[in-house]
């Protein structure tokens, strides 16, 4: 197990480096920051001077080397847009995004798994068909439309929930949380539901597909023949085995959710990293974009490694053959 971990860690470092290089190359293609940094009627000379000062005239490999060197020391530079240290800005936005993603993941699992089980046990029943149809309509609507519709219903028409922001937050050291106040929870509901919707359907369908398959397998038939209670067959044997791919997907999707939160945060003015990132794209704020990508990459690699390890624990068959 120790060798497996060390190996996995080494690979993770390589991935981070590759993400760094790619994100750097990527942000170079996004746009020209100078245009948004100067006055409307700036002269050609003023622009050229700024471009030179930003080091945008250096060859790309040199820019990357400089960037990497500073990033190693935890210095992600200073935002072009509002001239604050990028690391500080990311840390400031981190709690908002992570709390949103956490609640969305819990929602997706808590609703997705039971629905998946129900639709698997009676795959042709009216309930299963109904749930599936509703969920399909749900995922067939783009997130930005779902978000606006939820706002229209719950904020404008019913006035039950706020349409934007995080509500009251409480500072726990550097972490600002919305979990400790009523208005924080109220503000969380619509964005996390919007964000969870897609993953919820994915989980439901996966659980359903896996369960149906497992319920038809020989050892379940054997268990039935032995007269084990239905409940035990469904939940102890079938569900337990169906959970492995669900775990994989959920783990993988957390990184995806952080990235996907870009849209949700834009619609709900949720002051997280996604909102920061999309503003950086619009402004061609290179340091912020690069740092965001490095960070998402880091979270992703960590989650993946974690999933791999859990995989090995949940399914002992993989420990010997597949762990490499």
């Amino acid at each position: 197990m120790a060798r497996f971990l060390i190996k996995r860690l080494g690979q993770a470092v390589l991935v981070i480096l590759a993400v760094g290089l790619l994100s750097f190359l990527m942000v170079r293609t996004v746009g020209d920051p100078v245009q948004s940094m100067v006055r409307e009627d700036a002269t050609v000379a003023e622009r050229a001077a700024l471009r030179a000062r930003l080091g945008l005239d250096d060859p790309v490999p040199i820019q990357f080397a400089k960037y990497l060197g500073r990033a190693m020391q935890g210095d992600f530079g200073i935002s072009y847009r509002n001239q604050r240290p990028v690391a500080e800005m990311i840390v400031e936005r981190l709690p908002a995004t992570l709390e949103l993603v956490l609640v969305a993941t819990v929602l997706a699992l808590a609703i997705g798994i039971p629905l998946g089980v129900i639709t698997a046990i009676r795959p042709r029943g009216p309930l299963a068909n109904g749930v599936q149809a509703v969920s399909l309509v749900g995922v067939s609507t783009p997130t930005f439309v779902t978000g606006i519709l939820l706002i229209l219903l719950f904020a404008v028409t019913l006035r039950w929930l706020p349409s934007f922001g995080r509500g009251e937050t409480v500072e726990l050291g550097w972490w600002s949380t919305g979990f400790l106040t009523l208005s924080g929870w109220r503000a969380l509901l619509l964005p996390s539901l919007t964000l969870a919707l897609f993953q919820m359907t994915l989980i439901m369908r996966l659980v359903r597909a896996e369960m149906i398959e497992i319920l038809q397998s020989d050892y379940i038939r054997f268990a039935r023949a032995r007269g084990l209670p239905q409940h035990d067959i469904h939940y102890r044997l079938a569900l337990k085995n169906a959970l492995m791919p669900v775990l994989t997907i959920t783990g993988m999707q957390i990184g995806g959710l952080i990235a996907f939160a870009i849209v949700t945060e834009t619609v709900f003015q949720w002051p997280g990293m996604g909102l920061l990132f999309i503003q950086a794209v619009q402004f061609a704020d290179v340091p912020v974009m690069a740092a965001y990508l490095m960070f998402v990459g880091l979270v992703f690699v960590a989650l993946n490694a974690l999933v791999d390890v859990t995989y090995a624990v949940v399914d002992p068959r993989l420990r010997t053959g597949g762990a490499a």
Partner: peptide, 8 residues
């Protein structure tokens, strides 16, 4: 408060 999305 800044709210970027027009509809929101």
């Amino acid at each position: 408060t800044p709210i970027g999305s027009d509809a929101t």
